[in-house]
Design a protein around this nucleic acid. Structure first.
Length: 469
RNA sequence: GUUCCCUUCGUCUAGUGGCCUAGGACGCUGCCCUCUCACGGCGGAAACACGGGUUCGAGUCCCGUAGGGAGCACCA
């Protein structure tokens, strides 16, 4: 019987939840769900200068939108500072750590020399075995961890495989600053242990940290969790995604009109694969997800593919769900309040509308003709289409449609076909001007659907608006 | 600079020594469907970074080279 899986997502609250973080969270969540374990959220807010409550809120909100709610309470790293300090003291007592009185200038010089001589840049351990009695007075020391000097360290990473590094590369890292506060390296290890984390899943920018953390776990006599370092997401140009280079918060994706499930589907496919499967439900992802499907190389973010997946999800979404989801977009696009939105019409038109939109923003735009008040503004193409001949023809269409008493797609179809035959026009020559008059645009759902959703009165009035006798 | 990681169509990927004449998806593109736009259907162009090994046989294993990425803080 193995231990139940416990994973954690551990962002630092210095900004929004960006897309790479969202994917890491998704992988953590998926892995925990797959194994029936727990997925926890830890806010790494020990850098109080850069951490903000707003950022924490944005992260929680972003995860919530994606449906990645953590199990159990959120852990705030800053609340555990005393515990971290306590562990540092224990390390000091057991001889696994020591005080170092180096000044910053001394350290800078050390680095410079190392660089000049082509040696690894790091602390040289000059206080490691020095007698504390030699300590300069009036200097607050930092506490450093005694890393092994000989041999090498191997990590069996679930994604990267066996990774070995020479212990010469590991310098004695600081675990307690001169002001007595613990550093990140110490805090993560203590928190991961205290939270019972079994699998550390994070971006591979932390791969090198894993070696140092490995020894910290060992020095405390703690079990070392499994590591899984997943590759980072790059922008479309192959460069790393960063805040100033294309990295957006998940809220931006929400505002661009992507569905959370579609974004998740896209994200999990970015760097993980299950054969040729492209579109699958969250349930299937949980069932299939494992590290043997995770790709080591970094992936580029591709909006076009996201759009395609989103379009697929939209077409498969329930009409009432989309109708509700649309309100904020209609407000944002057209400044129309939720209360003024004719939801019944939206719902009725939704089957035809959702077929044609890849995002909620597009969907909102395509629904404008349902909401717009007469007389309609015509877009450029529609204006061009409604030349005088067409307007004259519309007058005759109006007469023909006025005769239709049963305003059903069937009778409308029959009436318009009869009309176009009588006029010796191809059906399209009738439908397009009609569409322009009805929608103000040259694209829309099927013309009979449009007539029906608009209703007899509104349809005839809109046509009348554009006729020329 | 140094350490570690990565490298299959433009992009995401399948591929775990013979099933590969390298498969799927997005995008691009030809045709069909058609009242527009989509959707859908049937086709097409398009990749194993390079060089050496190992092997009867290499996209798959090993070594180099090149390119890309990440780390190297009293940040997390």
């Amino acid at each position: 019987m193995t231990k139940p899986v416990v994973t954690r997502f551990a962002p630092s609250p210095t900004g929004f939840l960006h897309i790479g973080g969202a994917r890491t969270a998704l992988f953590c969540w998926l892995y925990a769900r797959h194994h029936g374990g727990q997925y926890l959220l830890r806010i790494e807010d020990t850098d109080r200068k850069r951490s903000t409550d707003e950022a924490t809120a944005a992260i929680v909100e972003g995860l919530d939108w994606l449906g990645l709610q953590p199990d159990g309470d959120i852990v705030y790293q800053s609340h555990n500072l005393d515990r971290h300090t306590e562990v540092a003291k224990a390390l000091l007592d057991s001889g696994n750590a020591y005080y170092c009185y180096c000044s910053k200038e001394e350290l800078a010089e050390m680095r410079e020399n190392a660089r000049a001589e082509g040696r690894p840049i790091g602390y040289d351990g000059r206080w490691r075995d020095r007698d504390p009695a030699e300590a300069p007075v009036g200097v607050d020391p930092v506490v450093r961890f005694k890393a092994p000097k000989e041999g090498s360290t191997t990590i069996h990473d679930l994604v990267q495989g066996e990774v070995t590094v020479s212990n010469k590369e590991l310098d004695d890292m600081i675990i307690l600053r001169a002001d007595g506060t613990p550093t990140y390296m110490l805090s993560v290890v203590v928190d991961d242990h205290d939270m019972g984390i079994t699998h550390i899943i994070r971006g591979d920018d932390h791969l090198n940290n894993a070696f140092r953390q490995y020894h910290l776990f060992g020095a405390m006599g703690w079990d070392v969790p499994e590591f899984a370092h997943i590759s980072l997401i790059h922008g479309a140009d192959g460069a790393k995604l960063s805040k100033r280079h294309g990295a957006l918060g998940v809220d931006a994706y929400r505002d661009m009109g992507y569905l959370p499930d579609a974004l998740k589907n896209y994200l999990v496919k970015l760097g993980w694969g299950h054969g040729d499967d492209e579109i699958f439900s969250t349930e299937q992802a949980i069932e299939w997800f494992d590290f043997d499907g995770v790709v080591k190389s970094p992936a580029r973010f591709d909006f076009t593919k996201l759009e395609h997946i989103n379009g697929t999800y939209m077409r498969e979404s329930a009409d009432d769900y989309l109708t509700e989801a649309l309100s904020p977009f209609i407000l944002a696009e057209f400044g129309i309040d939720e209360a003024e939105i004719p939801k019944d019409k939206l719902l009725a038109a939704m089957p035809g509308l959702k077929e044609r939109a890849k995002t909620l923003v597009e969907l909102a735009k395509s629904a404008l003709f349902l909401i717009a008040k007469r007389p309609l503004d015509l877009d450029e193409k529609a204006q061009k289409l409604l030349h005088s001949d067409a307007r004259e023809m519309l007058a005759r269409v109006l007469t023909a449609l006025d005769l239709v008493s049963d305003w059903s797609a069937e009778s409308l179809d029959a009436a318009l076909r009869t009309f176009s035959e009588a006029e010796q026009l191809k059906f399209g020559k009738v439908a397009q001007p009609l569409r322009a008059a009805l929608c103000g645009t040259t694209t829309s759902p099927g013309i009979f659907d449009v007539l029906q959703v608009l209703g007899r009165e509104e349809s005839l009035a809109r046509i009348a608006d554009q006729t020329m006798k």
